[in-house]
Every structure is written in structure tokens, then in C-alpha cells.
Amino acid sequence: MSSQAEIVPTRYMEAINLGLADALEEDDRVILLGIDVGAGGGIFTVTRGLHERFGSERVIDTPISEMGYVGAGVGAAMTGLRPIVEIMFMDFISVCLDPIMNQATKLGYMTNGALSVPIVFRMQTGAGRSAGAQHSQSLEAMLAHIPGLKVVMPATVTDARDLLLEAVRDPGPVAYIENRRLYAMKGDLETDPLPLGKARVARPGDDVTVVTWGQTLRDCLKAAETSSASLEVIDLRSLVPLDIETVYRSAERTGRVLVVHEAVQDFGAGAEIAARVGEEVFDLLLAPVRRVATPAVPMPFNPALERSLLPSPEAIAAAAEGLVAEGR
């Protein structure tokens, strides 16, 4: 693992850039494909400098043609390259779902392992800036529902770099989902990171296990600072693989589980976690599993309306305190 510790504190988006540079540096087969990722440096400047450093055969601008270039990334992964394919907004998987859902995640299985597809689908989401209903969706549950696809959602500066590197090194397809509300967040780049597939206890506590990933980690940690309840905050880091054991171990102590996510609540990943907790450690629960998530509506443009829908530290703290109050 590369050591960039001297650059601290680093912004989340800079850490992604460092991860991309490290991935391109350590393996000549790695290429970056996407719209405006080249000399332009990416629409949010995340890929700035990479084209100059690695050239136009490694950092490749594409037409606005997601079905074509994402599919080409999958074909390139089948034949010797290790592409990182950028999908500018996660919402745009709507126009390139076939290479993800029917090709990359099926070809290894359907060929009994004769083909492998080492590709990273890099994308970003993040509501809260009036981007509207077509630029604000967190669709990780949709992706996690596809067998064979790993789904990672870095919530910290360190994970922004290290989960990306882990994703590139993975022998199969990985969806790496950034949250653009975190782009400017500063943090320390740490060394000796956790491997992909391990959850992290971001803050220890005794009363309520709060399970989250991505941007809402910040909201949960803020809630933990102000809540009258003692919150143990778990950053899942990846939905697939799902480190549910870390959740069970915490729930065994707290007896209460709250799942928090930015994606809409209905049929979201929180439902899967609640079901597993109910199936496996029901007898240890002191209260029902609860969720704090965005209501199932398309995200409105109006800033006040949008704010009213997204999870907030206040809502998380209130839900946690409610769990303590209703406990048996």
C-alpha cells in the first residue's frame, strides 16, 4: 500500500485522485475511461493531472456514449486490461446497465471461471445540492442486488484512496461509489487500511448500533456527539461483501440496531440488513430494528424540500433515542 501520509490533511477528492494515480502507476494494464476524464481533468476535477502524467493511451476521453464505452471497458477487462470506467453520475447507469448487469457480472459465472472481468465502475452520487431527480440518486441497493458485483462506498479520506486500489486489484467487477458531498471533506490519510469486505467501528458506544455507509457516516457521527444515547457507529464500507458479523457482534452488546442511508428507504439496503439481524440475532434485540433514510420520492429541486427529505443528524439522534425509550 502506498504511503501518502505526509500529505495530510487531504481532501476526499484528492484521495480519489491519489488512488487513481497509484493504480495507474502500479499496473500498466490499468486504464481510465470516461467522459472528460482526460486533459479536462473530470467534471469535478477528480482526475486532474492524470492525463498529463500517464498519457492518452491510459487516461482516455470517450464520447457521451455510456453503453458503448462501459461495454468496451468490460470487453477490455475480459482480454487483458484492467479498466476503471467512470460513469459521471450514478443516475446514468440507466443507459449502461447491460454491460454491468448482464455482461461483467455474468460472464465469469457463465463460462465457469474461464473468463474474468477485472473492472471498476467508478461513479458518484450525493443529494443535497439541488441537482434534481436525475442527478441525485443513491442506487447502491440496485447494484448490490446483482449477484457477482462488489459494491463499495467510501466514507472517509483513507477509504476513498484505499478502497479504490482494492477495487482495481480485485479479479472481478467492483462498483466504486463516491459521494460528491464528501469531495471537499478533509481528513488524515492513514496507512495500514482495512481490506475490502471489512466493516469499521467508526465510534464505539453502548446503547444503539448505528449501521451506515457513504455520506451519512458524517451525519451519524454528528448525531453521536449530541445524542443522549451512546451510539456505536459502524461504517460498512462495502455492501457487497457485507460484513454483517461486525453488525451482529455490536448488536449483541447494544440490543438495538438503527440503519441509516441516503438512498430511499423502500427496498433499500437497510431492509436487507434489518432482515438479517432479525433472522440471526432476533433473540438478543431489545427493540425492533429501525431505519432512517430518504422517503421514496424522486428528489425535488427546491433546496428546502430536498433538505426536508434527507437524513439529518437530528433525525438520527431522535431515532436512536426513540429506540432506547421503546426498548424492553
Binding site: G71, A72, V74, G75, P99, N102, M110, T111
Partner: peptide
């Protein structure tokens, strides 16, 4: 042989990627 494919038209982007690797 990178495979037959049950999605009409899906082989063309994949083979584009194979051409890119080549």
C-alpha cells in the same frame, strides 16, 4: 471465443474492448 450473448447487440461493445486490448 468471448462468448455467445443473449442480449441483442451486446457483443459489439465487448468486442470493441477486445480491440482496445489488442
Amino acid at each position: 471465443i468471448l462468448g455467445a450473448n443473449a442480449i441483442v447487440g451486446a457483443g459489439m461493445p465487448l468486442i470493441t474492448g477486445a480491440g482496445l486490448s489488442s
